[in-house]
Simulated assay, not measured.
Amino acid sequence: MIETIPLPTTHDPVDRAFWQGCKDGKLLIQSCRDCGHVQHPPRAMCPVCQSMELGWELVSGKGTIWSYTIPHPPLLPAFAAIAPYIVAVIVPDDFPAIRIVGALADPAGGTIGGITPDTVAIGAPVNLTFIQLVDDVALPCWFPAGNDGLPEKEKQQ
């Protein structure tokens, strides 16, 4: 558990379903019921057709690392205890137009961090996990898929 971590507001009508989904172990992406556009983070209106008729689509929980960074030093003191940790931009397999920012986490440890930088690469497959921060907030995080998380082309080199 990270002490004094800034927590999201989970009762905002724009993203309440997103946070409820996370609490229930489901990652949801907002979609427009009029034009089909998908978007993340959630917004009150579709940027394509300006519709406010928005719904939610379930994400499979599999994705690819599009980019990543290791914050040095952590920007907020609350994160110093888990440093170094990796923050990645993930492309979900079933929603390739979306980018989701999230921490990499060791699912066995139940906390952010625990993933070493040498097991992470752009293009590496990842799987979804959730880290419970407090009773009503579970944070979607990712961990390398397979033994080392490296793309097949890098395993063969």
Rank of each mutant, 00 (worst) to 15 (best):
M1C: 06
H72S: 11
P92Y: 05
P42E: 10
T9C: 11
A145S: 15
P107N: 10
L27Q: 06
H72N: 07
Q156D: 10
H40R: 01
K155S: 05
G63A: 03
A124M: 06
D106F: 03
A83W: 01
P151E: 09
E152S: 15
A145Q: 14
A17L: 08
P8I: 11
A121I: 08
T10K: 13
K26Q: 05
V14L: 07
H11V: 08
P8G: 03
C46N: 03
L128A: 12
P8H: 00
S51L: 08
I98N: 08
V48E: 11
R99M: 01
A124C: 08
C46Y: 08
A83N: 01
D12K: 02
S67W: 01
Q157D: 09
A88I: 01
F79Y: 08
D24P: 00
D118I: 06
N127L: 14
G55T: 03
A17Y: 04
A83K: 04
H72Q: 13
P92M: 15
T119E: 07
A145I: 11
V134P: 04
T69H: 05
G63T: 07
R43H: 06
M1G: 14
A83F: 02
L139C: 07
Q50L: 14
M52W: 02
W66Y: 13
K26D: 01
A121R: 10
P13C: 09
W142G: 13
V59Q: 03
V38S: 14
L104M: 12
P151R: 02
H11Q: 10
I65F: 01
P125G: 12
H37L: 15
I82S: 03
A88D: 05
P42T: 07
G149S: 07
W142K: 05
G113Q: 03
L54G: 13
C49F: 07
I29R: 13
L139D: 01
V91Y: 00
E57H: 04
